[in-house]
């Protein structure tokens, strides 16, 4: 089956790392299930998008001036099929986005998320949870473009990798010239639970503007042994203790999902996946 480039990092780097492009099967990318919506100026909206059956989904959102959107995006696509997801969000002056994204389904799941902080004093706070297990491939490309003055972007990513999973997370803070007073933060924390995992992280920070404040940090490590030891000293089995530690790592994203039914479903889904590992 022929593959084509689905997404690229905004600035290419060494080829030997294999992180410049994400590819997907041409057939998969033929027809997209597209959702577009606009948030009128000055209004607040909450939206929940759950992916279950689609194989290629697109979401396009425009936030009007001083509008607010709380977006929950949960990708639980069929784990026996490939999935491609695209999200594009544009923020006008004073607009605010709070987004919780869960990337957990798909056999090979590719996703690209573009948050364009075009408006002055716009804000985007994006939290991502990813879970890779079995022989699944997760390939994510999150780009926060900061072109508005005093705009603020926050990208926090929490992941767990098990079995023989492969994952690439590309997260970019792109400060455009003129984005005076902009601030950006990116953080990725990964817990690795298997010696056969392949884990690639590419946290880019690009800047054409001096009057900015940008930070990014990545932390990759095995599960905290002190935490495990403590939990096991309280009578938990190793597997149970590990599960609990991973669930705790995901708490910052899970707590943003206000739909309690969905949150419960997700907790159950993650528990099952961890049990199967």
């Amino acid at each position: 089956m022929a593959e084509k480039i689905f997404s690229k990092i905004p600035m290419a780097t060494w080829r030997w790392l294999g992180v410049n492009n994400a590819t997907a099967e041409e057939e998969l990318l033929a027809v997209a299930d597209t959702r577009s919506f606009k948030i009128p100026a000055g209004t607040d909206k909450e939206a929940v998008v759950v992916i279950r059956q689609e194989q290629y989904g697109k979401i396009q959102v425009k936030l009007g001036e001083n509008s607010r959107l709380k977006l929950t995006y949960v990708q639980l696509a069929d784990t026996d099929k490939d999935y491609a997801g695209e999200i594009e969000i544009q923020l006008s002056d004073g607009a605010q986005l709070e987004m919780a994204a869960v990337e957990a389904g798909g056999k090979k799941a590719v996703s690209k998320v573009l948050v364009n902080l075009a408006g002055n004093s716009s804000r985007a706070d994006v939290s991502v949870l990813y879970l890779g297990d079995k022989q699944r491939v997760l390939d994510m490309n999150y780009v926060m473009v900061q072109s508005g003055k005093k705009c603020e972007a926050k990208l926090e990513v929490y992941g767990a990798l098990l079995d023989k999973a492969e994952k690439i997370f590309r997260g970019t803070l792109d400060f455009k010239r003129g984005a005076k007073g902009a601030a950006g933060q990116e953080k990725e924390q990964v817990v690795v639970l298997s010696s056969q995992v392949r884990n690639r992280s590419v946290p880019l920070m690009l800047s054409g503007e001096s009057e900015v404040d940008g930070h990014h940090a990545v932390s990759i490590g095995k599960i905290d042994e002190a935490k495990l030891y403590y939990l096991m000293s309280r009578g938990l089995e190793m597997a149970e203790a590990k599960k609990l530690v991973v669930e705790a790592a995901f708490a910052p994203v899970m707590s943003r999902i206000t739909d309690t039914e969905l949150q419960g479903e997700l907790q159950h889904y993650i528990k099952e996946r961890l049990s199967d590992a």
Binding site: M11, T13, S194
Partner: peptide, 11 residues
């Protein structure tokens, strides 16, 4: 511009 990449195998 800052372009770091990490490719980690194992736990």
């Amino acid at each position: 511009d800052t372009l770091p990449a990490m490719d980690i195998q194992g736990d």
